[in-house]
Nucleic acid binder design. Structure first.
Lengths: 241, 241
DNA sequence: GGAGAAACGTTACGCTCCATAACGAACACG
DNA sequence: CGTGTTCGTTATGGAGCGTAACGTTTCTCC
C-alpha cells in the first residue's frame, strides 16, 4: 500500500517474517482448537519462543486480534475479487454465484475467522471504531453493489420480487451509498441488502453447524438453489436451471 | 417437567433460588460487558460470595454456560410460542410475521444470548453433543414447520418461487423430518429451510451491528419487507402490503 | 431432642495465562 | 572496532480457574 523503498534491511525482513509467523501460528492454533481464543503462551511455545518475546511485535492480545481481523477480511475481499475477475464482465449470474460461493467456502474453511469478522466480537476485545469489523461489511456491500451496478447499467436489472419501498430506505441509500443513486433504483437497493442477508443467513447457519443434520450433498444443492432464489428475488438475470 | 412432590424442602428452595440468582447474575454481567464472557470471580463478587462457592452449583464454567444456553432457547421458544398462540390458527401470514418479529426482537434485546445459542460459542467452550445448541435449531425448525404444516393441510401452501429440488434434499426430509413427508412437499420443505436462512441472516447481521449504518426506521421497514419476501418466496399466503 | 450426616461457604493453595521489568546477546552503524 | 538499537531471555506481579481442607449451618433419623 505505502510506497516504501522496495528493499528492506535484513532486520526489517526478519521482523515482518516474524510478524507473519506469529499471525500464521495464531490462525493455526485457532483452527486446531476450534475457537477464536488464542494464548500468547501457546503461540510462543509453537514458535519455540518465550511469551514475552511476542510483545516486541504486538502490544497486547487485542492488537494481534485486530491484525488477524484485518487480514481475514482482506483475504475474503481478495478471494471474492479473484472470483469476480475470473468471470466475464457481463456474466452477471455467474459473478453472483461465484462471489456467493467464495463467501460460503471461506466461512466453512475458516469458521473462526468468519466468526471474528462477521460474528460477535471476541470476549474482552473491543473493536476500534471505524475499524476492520465495519470495513468488512462495507467491502462485502461494495462487491455486491458492483454486480448490481453492472446489471443496472446494461439494462438487465429486472424488477425485484418485492417492491415495497419506504422513504427510510430511500434516505439511507442517499446518505450512505450516494454513488448508487440514479443507477440502482431504491427497490433494487433494498433487494440488494436482502440478497446479502439471505446469503449471510445460509452461510452463518452452516458455518456454525446448524445444518449439520443435512447431508453435504443436500447442503450443496440447498445453497445453490438458495442463492439462485436470492438473485431472482432481487431481479438479477439468472437463467433457469 | 418431572412429577416431583410439589413442595420443596427449605434447602431445595434455597438451592434453586441460588442457581437462579447465579444465572441471572451471569446474564446481567453479559449484558453489562457486552460479551458472552463471564468470570466466576465477578459473578461471586456481584452476589456477595466467594468464587469457590459457585462450584457447589456448577461443576465448571462450561456447565454454567450450558445451562444459560438451555435457558436462552427455552425463553426464545416460549416467546415464539406465545406469539403464535396470540394469532388465529388460520392467520398464516400473521403467524409467520409474529414469529419472525419475536426472533428479531429477542436477538436485538439479548444479543449475547443470541450469539450463545445460534452464533459461535464462547472461546474454550465445547458444546456437548446432542446438547441444547442443536436443540435450539430443532425447536426453531419445529416452530417454522408448524406454520407450513398448517398451510399445507388447509391447501393454502402455494408453490415456492424456486422448485429446483434435488434428491439429496428429499432424502433429508425423509431422514430427519419424517413427520412432514406427504404433508409438506419437498420443494416446500426446501423453501422452508431457505425461509429460516433468510430470517436468520437479517437478524444475525442486525444483532452484530452490521446494519447500524441504516436508520432504525429503515431497518424496521427493511425487515418487514424481508420477511414478506421470504414468505412469498416460500409459497406462504401473504396479502399484498 | 440430640447425634450423625449432608450441604454450604469460607480460607488456603496450585496452576495457567497476561503483561511488565530488568538483564544479556546479536546485529547494524559510524 | 566501539556504541546504540533490537531482540529474546529470565524474573516477577497480578488475575482467574479449579481443588482441597476446614468450620458452620441445616436436615434427618433414631
Amino acid at each position: 500500500m505505502v510506497a516504501e523503498p522496495a528493499v528492506l534491511s535484513r532486520r526489517e525482513r526478519a521482523r515482518v517474517a516474524t510478524v507473519d509467523e506469529i499471525k500464521a501460528t495464531a490462525l493455526q492454533l485457532m483452527r486446531e482448537t476450534g475457537t477464536t481464543d488464542i494464548r500468547f503462551t501457546d503461540i510462543a511455545r509453537a514458535m519455540g519462543m518465550t511469551p514475552p518475546a511476542l510483545y516486541r511485535y504486538f502490544d497486547d492480545r487485542d492488537e494481534l486480534l485486530t491484525a488477524l481481523i484485518a487480514d481475514a477480511y482482506d483475504t475474503l475481499g481478495a478471494r471474492i475479487g479473484a472470483a469476480l475477475a475470473a468471470r466475464a464482465e457481463d456474466d452477471l449470474a455467474g459473478r453472483w454465484e461465484a462471489a456467493a460461493g467464495v463467501y460460503r467456502d471461506w466461512a466453512r474453511s475458516e469458521p473462526q475467522q468468519f466468526a471474528l469478522v462477521l460474528g460477535m466480537p471476541v470476549p474482552g476485545y473491543v473493536a476500534p471504531d471505524e475499524g476492520p469489523t465495519t470495513d468488512a461489511a462495507k467491502a462485502a456491500m461494495a462487491q455486491l453493489a458492483s454486480i448490481f451496478v453492472a446489471a443496472a447499467r446494461t439494462g438487465r436489472l429486472g424488477e425485484p420480487l418485492i417492491r415495497e419501498v419506504t422513504q427510510a430506505v430511500v434516505d439511507c441509500e442517499k446518505a450512505k451509498h450516494d454513488e448508487l443513486v440514479g443507477i440502482v433504483p431504491p427497490e433494487s437497493f433494498q433487494a440488494m441488502l436482502q440478497t446479502w442477508a439471505m446469503l449471510h443467513g445460509f452461510v452463518s447457519l452452516e458455518a456454525y453447524g446448524h445444518f449439520d443434520w443435512l447431508e453435504p450433498d443436500a447442503r450443496d444443492s440447498l445453497f445453490r438453489s438458495h442463492i439462485r432464489l436470492a438473485a431472482r428475488a432481487a431481479g438479477l438475470p439468472v437463467p433457469p436451471p
